[in-house]
């Protein structure tokens, strides 16, 4: 829920995203406005093709809107160039993907180090921070393992450690439990709950009600529009 006494982290107003497919125009987002404050825990729901991922990419500064404005911590990111967007992603956003997206040749530690490399942090400091982050997600004994030596749940933990390591303003997770069995999915959700309790801002995309019930605010989308935006009065957190 928006906390009115604080400046919101994310503030988008009347955002649209149009993809040109030959002669055809696909309106992935039509007119979306949303404000997200610090330490919110939001689930983004909706049927396939409703624009969830497009909105996530926009929030994550991977993409810029066709029209409308996007303020991130008060800064207008609508017309930043590639490298400026990369810098915001690096500093402010932690991504968790459905397919983990770890580098297969790198160890868990090296994977978690990667965002710090791009932040220009010195080697010794990087290792210290990455170790801390991995310990935080309960993988202190798996630092030197390659992704193929880890289970699905462990891989997602590495990905979460990687998202956390730069201490970002928000954590964006697109179907983070989509590739996990329900037991492991529960463990991962517990980890997100923990992150939220520790003060992080969490936004996750899901189509499973069970998963969404952990969040404190549920935003439902349909055809590129926000259908409903309600507080979850009884979160499973």
């Amino acid at each position: 829920m928006t906390q009115p006494d604080q400046q919101p982290i994310i503030s988008i107003s009347h955002i649209a995203k149009v993809y040109e497919m030959g002669d055809e125009q696909v309106h992935a987002l039509r007119d979306v406005s949303l404000t997200i404050g610090a330490n919110e825990y939001i689930a983004l729901m909706g049927p396939s093709g409703s624009g969830k991922s497009t909105l996530m990419n926009m929030l994550g500064c991977l993409d810029t809107p066709s029209s409308g404005t996007y303020l991130f911590n008060g800064e207008n990111v609508s017309d930043l160039n590639d490298d400026e967007l990369a810098e915001i992603r690096n500093r402010e956003i932690g991504f968790v993907f459905q397919t983990f997206n770890l580098l297969p040749r790198a160890t868990a530690l090296q994977n978690v180090e990667l965002p710090l490399v791009y932040a220009g942090i010195a080697k010794a400091k990087r290792i210290e921070m990455a170790e801390q982050s991995l310990t935080h997600v309960g993988l202190d004994d798996r630092m030197d393992h390659k992704p193929n030596e880890l289970s699905g749940g462990q891989r997602q933990r590495v990905a979460i450690a990687r998202a956390l390591v730069t201490n970002p303003s928000i954590i964006l997770a697109d179907e983070p439990t989509g590739n996990l069995d329900s037991k492991t999915g529960q463990d991962i959700m517990n980890l997100f709950n923990e992150l939220w309790r520790a003060g992080n801002t969490v936004i996750l995309v899901t189509h499973e009600e069970d998963i969404a019930r952990h969040a404190h605010r549920i935003v439902r989308m349909r055809d590129g529009l926000i259908e409903s935006d309600e507080a979850n009065t009884k979160p499973l957190t």
Partner: peptide, 16 residues
């Protein structure tokens, strides 16, 4: 390609 996407998502600038 996918690895490049991951690196960019994590904040790799063009020069990297």
């Amino acid at each position: 390609t996918r690895e490049i996407g991951v690196r960019k998502a994590l904040g790799a600038k063009r020069k990297w």
